[in-house]
Write a protein that binds this DNA or RNA. Structure first.
Lengths: 218, 218
DNA sequence: ACTTACAAACAGTCAAGCCTGTTTTTTGAA
DNA sequence: TTCAAAAAACAGGCTTGACTGTTTGTAAGT
């Protein structure tokens, strides 16, 4: 009965160490940048030896790639949960824009900005990442499609609107780096965009169903 | 071996060497990435010795910072020229969206993606870059304002629309790295966006003297 | 016993900054 | 005008430091 974790199986040890290393990698990518995300630093931040890292991952690229996949998987699951709740209670399209901003601003796109340049120049790394990102995009598309079904809008058009929203947010976040201390600018852009999105989201006051759970899971 | 047998002044030699080094730096940033943009590589690509580089620039960060400033200055001047021509002949708002895309896609934002992460983590580098970027943004704003005056639209609102356009394009270009071979996706987004922008640009045919482009009403 | 999980030292590589030497241009006084 | 000293523009080597991949050693789990 290892309730307090005195004796752990090898699988458990391995899984936790891997998780600690991947979390440390994402933390480091966000806080220090890819260039400063060295294997000694990752190991140090994860509280394990560098030998442990080399045991679990083939090398620097491998652990970064795995960590990114882990991060995107979590983000996709979070978005999915948000969409479930959103559709259950019938929120406003403004919320979606706000969620997109918060999701990307909450480290996701800052971390992305770290590895995108490397992916652009390193074919092996890029090849590793493309399937991961494709799956993430598929997850997004599924959510947008469900949203369209819920709102009764054209799925293709809805996906375009939401993808544009994501791109807008990406561009805005990239600006925050060298255009800091200008909240009015970003508020203005988000406000403008919410107004635009509303036009494409009649978002019928389905709030009448508030309180009812899953209506139809296409 | 002298180009035309003439003696060149020190200012000329210095200016040309600096320009060669800065151009090589941007080329390298775009083609190889920031991490691979080393001072030996820059010198080799510029066809000068590393000593020449250290003579003209205080160090690696300094030459990169100077090169970026040079690049942004050129881009701002190009945009200004485009706007002059655009206003003289009275183009469609679609053209502006297309120009924004072309400008950013033509290395500008790919190079930006290289140094943004470094700027985010290196306070000195960021402090060096912020004034440069602020000036670039001021140049953009001036163009948008002139455009608003020409179109008879509200300057503030026009700036918001155009800044949103820039952000959208930034986000789209960042996607191209890990979402390649999907021209329909980008075409779709740009087409959708042009449609949105048209709503905010009556773009009165006031001076529509010259042959107008496609202005399909969707 | 045998494998897995980890620890730690090792070796090769390479860029950044520094420093010294060499060539080209400018300066200023005879 | 001449021409040598000063200054600027370059060339190239040396040192240090840090990171990656690898290998060897050890304890824990099955």
């Amino acid at each position: 009965m290892r309730v307090s974790g005195k004796r752990r199986s090898q699988k458990e040890r391995s899984a936790e160490t891997s998780a600690r290393l991947m979390n440390a990698t994402i933390d480091l990518l966000h806080d220090q940048g890819l260039a400063r995300t060295t294997t000694p630093e990752i190991a140090r931040m994860a509280g394990v030896s560098r030998g442990a890292l080399t045991h679990h991952f083939a090398g620097r690229e491998a652990i970064i790639s795995a960590s990114v996949a882990d991060m995107l998987g979590k983000a996709a699951r979070d978005l999915h949960r948000f969409a479930e709740d959103f559709m259950a209670r019938g929120g406003s399209s403004d919320e979606i824009v706000d969620y997109a901003w918060r999701m990307m601003d909450d480290r996701l796109f800052y971390v992305t900005m770290e590895y995108l340049p490397e992916a652009r120049h390193n074919p092996a790394f890029r090849a590793d990442l493309i399937p991961t990102v494709k799956e993430f995009h598929a997850g997004l598309d599924a959510v947008w499609t469900a949203l369209a079904a819920r709102a009764g809008t054209d799925p293709d058009h809805t996906r375009t609107v939401m993808n544009a929203t994501m791109c807008l947010v990406r561009g805005m976040i990239s600006q925050t780096v060298l255009r800091p201390n200008d909240p009015a600018y970003y508020e203005g852009l988000l406000g403008f965009w919410k107004q635009q999105v509303r036009q494409h989201f009649p978002m019928k006051p389905a709030a009448a169903l508030t309180g009812r759970r899953k209506t139809a899971t296409a």
